[in-house]
Computed example of a mutant assay.
Amino acid sequence: MVNYKNYKVWEKSHHLVLKIYDVTSSFPKSEMYNLTSQMNRASVSIPTNIAEGCGRETEKELVRFLYIASGSAHELDYLLLVAKELGFMKPHISDSIISEIDEIKRMLFSLIKTIKSSLNA
C-alpha cells in the first residue's frame, strides 16, 4: 500500500479537479446535469482512481486503477473540446487545461510503465 499523496500525478490531477469545478461553475444552468456534471465527475475520477489504486493490495491492482484514471483523463480531454466548441469556455482556457491533461496522461503512462516493469523483473 502506497500513500497516493506522494505521487506528483495525484497532486496535479487534484489541482485539475479544483480548476474544472471553477470553470464549470460558469456554464449555463441548463448544463448542470449534463456537461457540467460529466466534466466534474471525469475530473474527480482521475485522482480518485489513483488514490483507490494506492490502497489496493498489489501493484497489479494499482496499475488497473491507473489505467482507469487515464481513461478518465481522455474523457475529460474530449469534454473540454465539446465545451469549447459549444462556446462555454474561451479557447485559451480550454487549451491550457487540455495541456495540463496531456501532462497528466503522460505521467500516468510513465508510472504504469515503471510499475509494470518492476512486476516483470
Rank of each mutant, 00 (worst) to 15 (best):
V2L: 12
V2S: 11
N3M: 12
N3F: 09
Y4N: 05
K5E: 15
N6C: 06
Y7K: 10
V9P: 05
V9F: 09
W10A: 05
K12M: 14
S13E: 03
S13F: 09
H14A: 01
H14G: 01
H14M: 04
V17S: 14
L18Y: 10
L18N: 15
L18M: 14
K19T: 02
I20R: 13
D22E: 15
T24A: 08
S25G: 06
S26H: 08
F27T: 05
P28G: 08
P28R: 07
K29D: 11
E31W: 11
E31N: 14
E31V: 15
M32P: 03
Y33R: 09
N34K: 13
L35D: 08
L35H: 10
T36R: 15
Q38C: 01
N40F: 02
A42R: 12
S43M: 10
S45D: 13
I46H: 12
T48H: 13
I50F: 04
A51W: 12
E52F: 07
E52G: 11
G53K: 03
G53S: 07
C54S: 12
G55I: 04
E61N: 13
V63M: 06
V63L: 11
R64Q: 11
R64H: 14
F65V: 07
F65W: 07
I68E: 02
I68Q: 02
A69K: 03
A69Y: 03
G71I: 10
G71C: 11
E75H: 06
L76E: 08
L76A: 12
D77N: 08
Y78D: 14
Y78S: 14
L79K: 09
L80E: 01
A83P: 06
A83H: 09
K84I: 10
E85A: 00
E85V: 00
L86I: 09
L86F: 07
G87C: 00
F88S: 00
M89R: 14
M89C: 13
K90V: 03
P91S: 12
H92R: 11
I93E: 05
S94N: 04
S94D: 02
S96Q: 05
S96D: 09
S96N: 03
S96T: 02
S96F: 03
I97P: 00
I98L: 07
S99A: 12
E100F: 01
I101E: 05
D102A: 13
E103W: 07
K105P: 05
L108H: 03
L108W: 07
F109P: 02
S110V: 02
I112K: 11
I112S: 01
T114M: 02
T114N: 05
T114P: 00
T114E: 04
I115D: 04
I115E: 02
K116Q: 14
K116D: 09
S117N: 11
S118V: 10
S118I: 04
N120W: 04
A121D: 08
